[in-house]
């Protein structure tokens, strides 16, 4: 029997990836309780409503936590150094991602970042973040 839950979960994931492919960052907004969420899910984890809208995100956020891989821990990821960063978007949801254009020592919790997009082969655009410059030129 086809699992409609899986199909709906895939729909949400595929829609998010398609937006990223178009260099757009969107978050789900629940029709039931109004909460915004990511990573994509077919049902609201707060109120269980199934209806939602994709709303455009500002693309800005702050670093919630981060780590730097300085020596390989896994044979599939040998190219160190690289960071893995959890970003808390201005809209609330948190995402696992990375910050580009930085070196070890450049990042801190609470630092302002903004979304960027790295194009790979067709259909393989990756959502990344970069440190946001504030109006006076200093890092936010």
């Amino acid at each position: 029997m086809p699992d409609s839950v899986d199909i709906r979960a895939n729909e949400a994931n595929e829609a998010f990836e398609a937006f990223v492919g178009d260099h757009e960052l969107r978050v789900q907004q629940c029709d039931g309780c109004g909460r915004r969420r990511l990573p994509p899910s077919w049902i609201c984890p707060h109120c269980l409503a199934e209806e939602y809208e994709w709303i455009a995100a500002s693309g800005t956020g702050v670093i919630h936590s981060f780590i730097w891989y300085l020596r390989p821990l896994d044979p599939a990821f040998l190219a160190t150094p690289y960071n893995v960063t959890i970003v808390e978007l201005a809209e609330g949801p948190r995402l696992i991602s990375k910050v580009v254009g930085v070196q070890p020592g450049d990042l801190s919790v609470g630092q302002a970042v903004e979304a960027a997009f790295e194009d790979g082969p067709p259909g393989a655009t990756t959502l990344v973040f970069r440190v946001r410059e504030t109006a006076d030129g200093a890092e936010g």
Partner: peptide, 15 residues
């Protein structure tokens, strides 16, 4: 993004 090894989760917590 290469989030590998359970130790990394603990490292995110320590950050």
């Amino acid at each position: 993004y290469g989030l590998v090894n359970a130790g990394a989760i603990a490292a995110l917590g320590w950050t």
